[in-house]
Amino acid sequence: MRAAVLILAAILFLLLPGHPVRGHDLVADEYISRYRELENKFPGTFYMSGNREKQKVALSFDDGPSPQHTPEILDILAEYSVPATFFLLGQEAAEHTWLVERIAREGHELGNHSYTHRNFTGLEWSAVEEEIRRTGQLIDDITGEYPRLVRPPYGGVTIGQLQRFEQSDYKLVNWSVDAGDYEEENQPEILLARIQLQMHPGAIILLHDGGGDRSSTIRILPELIEMLQDEGFTFTTVGELIDSNYY
């Protein structure tokens, strides 16, 4: 009960003009508008969400694997029998191959988040290809499966790059719900409130298991799962969620 009250208070706080974290939400609004246009322009290649007529959602985690945070996240997911998609950085996967193995062994989906987390919008196509190829080959060497889902660092991609991806068998996946767990103002109640305000059927939820202190992400994860289950949502992987667009 106390947690629900805190989340409600945080929602009201987020809706107030001029609150300290409003900048994030204004950026998020601009992001949604811009990338929805790209999703409509490149169907079957670029995704922000799945089928909005089904009560399914996907949790996705970026910038790992991290020995500090990924094991705890995996423990929570196992406790609730919830699948997730982990978009791995190649340089982190190379350092922590045992975590890549564990993620795959426990039935989660692996995606490609580049090797060095350089923004694709500032790279030539050959460099983008190398970032993806190097990470994909590494994941294949560790797990025996080459990932076809790619999440560009920072969600950044150009129209010219999308035209190239259209000619490949990769699927680029961004997100429609951003928890903002990379922000300094990332108290658990604020993160949950922000997710609650953005939620919709077919949502791809952006979270992080690497790249910084993700203790708040770990703290909210059980409550987030329970909150969404209470609202009638079921969890699936990103790959299954975007495939459901055509079912």
Rank of each mutant, 00 (worst) to 15 (best):
6 L>N: 01
6 L>V: 09
6 L>F: 07
8 L>Q: 11
12 L>W: 11
18 G>N: 12
22 R>G: 07
27 V>W: 15
31 Y>A: 06
32 I>W: 06
35 Y>V: 06
35 Y>E: 05
36 R>C: 10
54 K>E: 14
54 K>T: 11
55 Q>H: 06
59 L>K: 03
64 G>E: 05
64 G>S: 12
65 P>E: 09
69 H>F: 15
70 T>N: 07
70 T>S: 14
72 E>M: 11
76 I>Q: 04
76 I>M: 08
76 I>Y: 06
77 L>P: 00
80 Y>K: 12
84 A>P: 00
85 T>Y: 00
89 L>E: 03
91 Q>G: 06
94 A>N: 10
95 E>L: 15
101 E>A: 10
103 I>C: 02
103 I>K: 02
103 I>S: 01
104 A>M: 04
107 G>F: 10
108 H>R: 11
109 E>N: 07
110 L>I: 15
112 N>V: 08
113 H>Q: 11
116 T>Q: 13
118 R>H: 14
121 T>W: 02
124 E>N: 13
124 E>Y: 12
128 V>W: 03
131 E>I: 09
131 E>N: 09
131 E>P: 03
132 I>M: 06
136 G>R: 02
138 L>Y: 04
140 D>G: 05
142 I>G: 08
145 E>T: 14
148 R>V: 13
148 R>W: 14
156 G>H: 07
162 L>H: 08
165 F>S: 05
167 Q>P: 02
168 S>Y: 00
170 Y>M: 10
173 V>Q: 04
181 D>L: 13
182 Y>M: 14
183 E>D: 14
187 Q>P: 00
190 I>W: 02
190 I>T: 07
195 I>V: 15
196 Q>H: 13
198 Q>A: 13
201 P>I: 13
201 P>K: 05
203 A>Q: 02
206 L>I: 10
206 L>R: 01
208 H>Y: 12
209 D>G: 09
211 G>F: 00
215 S>W: 02
216 S>A: 15
225 I>A: 08
230 D>I: 09
231 E>L: 14
232 G>T: 12
236 T>R: 00
237 T>H: 06
244 S>I: 06
